[in-house]
Amino acid sequence: MINNTRTSHEIHATPPGDLAIWFFIFAELLAFGVFFVAYAFARAHNVELFNESQQHLNRLSGAINTLVLITSSYFMVRAVAAIKQGYSILCARWIASAIGLGFVFLAIKMAEFHEKFSAGISLSTNTFYMFYLSLTLFHFMHVILGMVILAAIMLKARNGSYSPANHTGVETGASYWHMVDLLWIILFPLVYVIR
């Protein structure tokens, strides 16, 4: 229940939202970090294979998905701003739009997976595809988890459970959702672009 009013420019002792979610976020960052580094070193042993296989990825859908997640993340910033002003319904609407963009992300990603799976590509095709599929699938699960968290918060916001004095829940969900975005911001250039 600390840091409820963050409209001033003061420095806060703890990050926005429940501190417990931040431990979870750091653990998640560590998990993805290990995976990213493993990718980079596996590539170093197999540069040609990685560069060749990367050519077959749909870079456009990856880029659009980045834009989608960043915008969705921005909507959550607006949702937090709305609840700080006491606008519960407006807050719920911003969260709903963030979730809506989450669905757009999932749809684009599923189209991408469909394309790859129907081309007969699987985890065992080669090391590059193993990483591409497992990294994006693992991230995909996190998008779903994030959307579930946001949905729960949206319902509470709609019921008027949050107020300018008590909105830790909204910040907690927003922090997790920003993390999902943050990870994709690294994942996209790493797997789709850098060669």
Binding site: F23, A27, L30, A31, V34, S124, M130, S134
Partner: peptide, 22 residues
């Protein structure tokens, strides 16, 4: 079992100490 388990097993079980540390 397929080779990808070497990656999955290594990465995820390397993180298993985290919940114990928490």
């Amino acid at each position: 079992t397929p080779e990808y388990w070497q990656w999955f097993g290594s990465v995820f079980s390397a993180l298993e100490p985290i919940p114990f540390f928490m």
